[in-house]
């Protein structure tokens, strides 16, 4: 394929990916969508889920939590609130964090911390589900 798509994936902390790719699949709030080169201008809000980056060398799955996707003739930009490559996720550490956050979420002591833990738990469990879906 002669055409490639200029794609960058950034989170507030760092730039996770930047370069030319063949295709990107992303989880929009109104359904998953794929972006190929020469896609029409398009902007959407993302829900937590997997972004799949298709390169000649293979597919890289990245988990993102919320954010925006912006397709312009110049390429695709994903602004994620939080993003992590699935290959960087340690299943054991994830389980440990889920257990810890779960106990925080059930701790009625500090209301703001409890709320934050509940949000965090939703994110972590979505991440675990994403990890499970690619494992087999």
């Amino acid at each position: 394929m002669a055409d490639t798509l200029n794609f960058s994936l950034v989170s507030p902390e760092r730039e996770l990916f930047s370069g030319e790719v063949n295709q990107v699949d992303a989880p929009g709030v109104e359904g998953e969508f794929g972006v190929l080169p020469k896609h029409a201008p398009f902007m959407t809000v993302l829900k937590p889920g997997l972004v799949r980056i298709h390169e000649a060398s293979g597919v890289t799955p990245v988990f993102v939590r919320g954010g925006f996707a912006d397709v312009t003739p110049a390429g695709l930009t994903i602004l994620a609130e939080e993003a992590v490559r699935l290959s960087d996720v340690d299943a054991g550490a994830l389980e440990a964090e889920i257990a810890k956050v779960k106990s925080d979420a059930n701790d009625p002591g500090d209301e703001t911390r409890r709320k934050r833990s509940v949000e965090r738990l939703v994110y972590l469990e979505a991440l675990r589900a994403a990890l499970g879906s690619t494992a087999h």
Binding site: V29, E30, P41, M43, V45, F68, P73, E81
Partner: peptide, 28 residues
């Protein structure tokens, strides 16, 4: 960005995107 005459498609809608994007822009 030069849209080359094309028009943006917004999902769910332009207003909804702006509403979530602007607070994010502020905190950024």
């Amino acid at each position: 960005v030069d849209l080359q005459g094309a028009r943006y498609i917004y999902e769910p809608s332009e207003e909804a995107i702006l509403e979530t994007l602007l607070p994010r822009y502020l905190s950024t």
